[in-house]
């Protein structure tokens, strides 16, 4: 549990973070979003004391962090950054084994941990353990960065735009992997990004920052349905808002369990697909319904346009 109370950071001539309140629950994935320079990284770095805050209080597990030893505190928190910061003179295995080594784990346990993490991130240990960072591709280096952050089995993970420098496909893969791993482990994560789509995809809670302040926080749904102000709706991409919201819901949440009249040659969609994908398919096929299939291609039900846009009477289009 991380608690920020009226936390501020002043640099010589700027106020990077301005009296923010935020509490992040155990096991939560909290994403800080905002335009560049709004104080996201500064907030993150205050949590592991890479930057000392100017005012306010910052507590981790109920204890003010300035009462904890900074070095010990950081060993309990994983930290991954955009430029990876991998040590160029160490192999992948040495890089990942750093925090366990600092924590004085026995050698065999470290080796085991390194293998386990590499495999978890789909990088066969035999192939990659002895490589040096400059021999890795961007995506691989980023995986190693994440593995290194996870290595000491920290309760808290701090990630500063870890995927920002990657191409969209690699990024999307890593996001999926991260979600999978994190759900397995139940870590508390503070994740910084300037990419609202990344935030919508990953976050349990999104915190929107602007000029050092928190403008709004809440789940993706809350934000999309009730943006607090113009800035937030701008950030959410006003025109696409509906589609963004639709992309957060799965078809199976809205389908009718009705498979009468199913014909396999008619257009269909997977139950796990998003409503956005369903809309797209309907547009493509010029048809206002789709059959819903499970992962074994068995029919589960039917989704109609009206299920996606459940019109209330007063919202009907006025007829002239």
């Amino acid at each position: 549990m991380i608690e920020l109370r009226r936390l501020s950071k002043h640099f010589a001539d700027t106020t990077a973070v301005d009296a923010i309140d935020l509490s992040i629950a155990r096991g939560e994935l909290c994403v800080l979003v905002g335009t560049s320079g709004c104080g996201k990284s500064t907030t993150l770095r205050m949590i592991n004391r890479l930057i000392e805050y100017s005012e306010g209080t910052l507590m981790v597990d109920g204890r003010p962090i300035d009462q904890l030893d900074a070095v010990q505190l950081r060993r309990r928190m994983g930290y991954a950054i955009q430029s990876t910061g991998l040590f160029p003179h160490w192999t992948v295995a040495q890089n990942i084994g750093l925090v366990p080594r600092l924590l004085k784990w026995p050698k065999s346990k470290i080796a085991q941990r390194v293998d386990e993490l590499l495999n978890l991130l789909n990088m066969p240990a035999r192939e990659f353990a002895d490589k040096y960072p400059q021999q890795l591709s961007g995506g691989q280096a980023q995986r190693v960065g994440v593995a290194r952050a996870l290595a000491g089995d920290p309760d808290i993970l701090l990630m500063d735009e870890p995927f920002a420098a990657l191409d969209p496909i690699t990024r999307s893969n890593l996001q999926d992997e991260l979600l999978r791993i994190l759900h397995q482990m139940g870590k508390t994560i503070v994740f910084v990004t300037h990419d609202i789509d990344e935030a919508l995809k990953l976050a349990d809670r999104i915190v929107i920052m602007d000029q050092g302040r928190i403008v709004q926080q809440g789940s993706a749904h809350e934000l999309l349905s009730q943006p607090a102000n113009e800035f937030v709706s701008q950030l959410l991409g006003k025109a696409d808002r509906g589609l963004k919201q639709a992309s957060l819901r799965q078809v199976q949440e809205r389908m009718q369990p009705n498979i009468q009249g199913y014909q396999s040659e008619q257009p269909s969609i997977s139950a796990k697909a998003s409503l956005k994908q369903a809309l797209s398919a309907m547009l493509w096929h010029q048809q206002d319904y789709l059959w819903v299939l499970d992962h074994q291609q068995q029919p589960q039900g039917l989704i109609e346009l009206a299920d996606i846009i459940p019109t209330k009477p007063q919202h009907r289009r006025p007829r002239s």
């Binding site: 592991n48 890479l50 070095v71 010990q72 505190l73 950081r74 060993r75 309990r76 928190m77 930290y79 950054i81 430029s83 990876t84 910061g85 991998l86 040590f87 160029p88 750093l98 925090v99 600092l102 960065g145 290194r148 701090l158």
Partner: peptide, 22 residues
């Protein structure tokens, strides 16, 4: 590279460890 030093600190290396090992 500044990022290397930042992540060394972020991983919880002490100033001496950073100096000698990095």
């Amino acid at each position: 590279d500044g990022a290397v030093l930042e992540s060394a600190r972020g991983m919880g290396m002490s100033a001496m460890q950073i100096l000698w090992q990095v």
